[in-house]
């Protein structure tokens, strides 16, 4: 069992949980993830490690509540426990040891960019982060990223930072400065847009993918993604890949495989919740 050591709401549906997993906290590297399995009948879900503290044994997970499983996770409070946490899984981020890195994060993906920036800065790389959200309340990890370099904030509605997409700010930086590598993590359309942008500049671009996954150890093949003509498994070959080769259309499509099921699962959970309320009112 893995206790929740701390909890913080970062934006309307994004929650930070610090989970006790000492071995993982000790050895995890940027880019790696864990598989979280809340209870007996829960799903196994992959979550990228946003940070860790080897002293307290805490692993930081940043969770966007979208389906039943993620909603259950963010409903946990300090002192509650998660049944299973396995990891750290996946390859660590491909690093550079000098130069200038541009780290681009969109929404909850910003949390995934955090350990990459952290690691780059430790290597002596100059880091510029461009992070974005729909509006001010959706911008996360700004203060954390400021520790590692300059941060440019973008919001779609202009309520905070620059108005516009992260790609607009990234384009300016790529035009005006020498950038050696780009890391981009966020929704699939954002990563695709960044990859299309950086291709023109000829800058190596790494994206972190979060496809459907069950075991996280290479066994199921559900997380397969296409890179050019090659099929790769995100869990054992990734989760980070060359953004210029990823077939984003296929990734986006496969992420929609269980959309109907997700709605059914949520509806069912809501119905159970309603029945439980009725029962508790009666008693």
């Amino acid at each position: 069992m893995h206790r929740i050591l701390a909890k913080q709401t970062l934006s309307p549906n994004v929650t930070r949980l610090d989970v006790h997993a000492p071995r993982i906290a000790q050895i995890r590297q940027a880019g790696q993830f864990v598989i979280v399995h809340l209870a007996e009948n829960s799903e196994r879900i992959p979550l990228t490690i946003a940070d860790s503290n080897p002293e307290t044994g805490a692993v930081t997970l940043v969770i966007q509540a979208v389906g039943k499983s993620t909603n259950e996770l963010v409903a946990l409070n300090v002192g509650d426990s998660i049944r299973d946490v396995a990891g750290p899984l996946g390859h660590p981020t491909e690093m550079i040891s000098s130069g200038h890195a541009l780290c681009i994060g969109g929404g909850v993906g910003t949390a995934v960019v955090h350990p990459i920036a952290q690691s780059l800065q430790k290597n002596g790389v100059r880091v510029t982060s461009v992070i974005g959200g729909r509006s001010k309340e959706w911008v996360i990890f700004e203060n954390e990223l400021k520790r590692y370099g300059n941060v440019v904030v973008c919001t779609d509605d202009g309520s905070y930072g620059r108005k516009g997409f992260v790609t607009d700010a990234a384009k300016e930086i790529l035009t005006n400065e020498k950038v050696d590598i780009v890391y981009a993590v966020g929704p699939v359309p954002m990563m695709r847009a960044v990859a299309n942008l950086t291709r023109g500049f000829g800058v190596h671009t790494i994206v972190s993918l979060n496809p459907v996954m069950i075991d996280g150890t290479g066994m199921c093949g559900g997380c397969r993604v296409s890179l050019g003509n090659e099929t790769k498994f995100a869990c054992v070959d990734g989760p980070e890949f060359d953004g210029h080769k990823v077939n984003f259309d296929e990734l986006q499509d496969r992420l929609g495989t269980y959309r109907e099921f997700e709605q059914k699962s949520l509806a069912c959970a809501a119905e159970n919740c309603r029945l439980e309320k009725q029962l508790s009112q009666k008693s």
């Binding site: 009948n41 799903e43 499983s69 075991d215 199921c220 093949g221 269980y258 099921f261 699962s265």
Partner: peptide, 24 residues
């Protein structure tokens, strides 16, 4: 599906019992 994924969903994750179990 790979057979591994199909069978793992159903056997280990009890997908035959969806939505009582969460894996579809």
């Amino acid at each position: 599906y790979s057979a591994n994924e199909y069978l793992t969903r159903i056997n280990l994750m009890a997908a035959y019992d969806f939505p009582r179990s969460d894996t579809p």
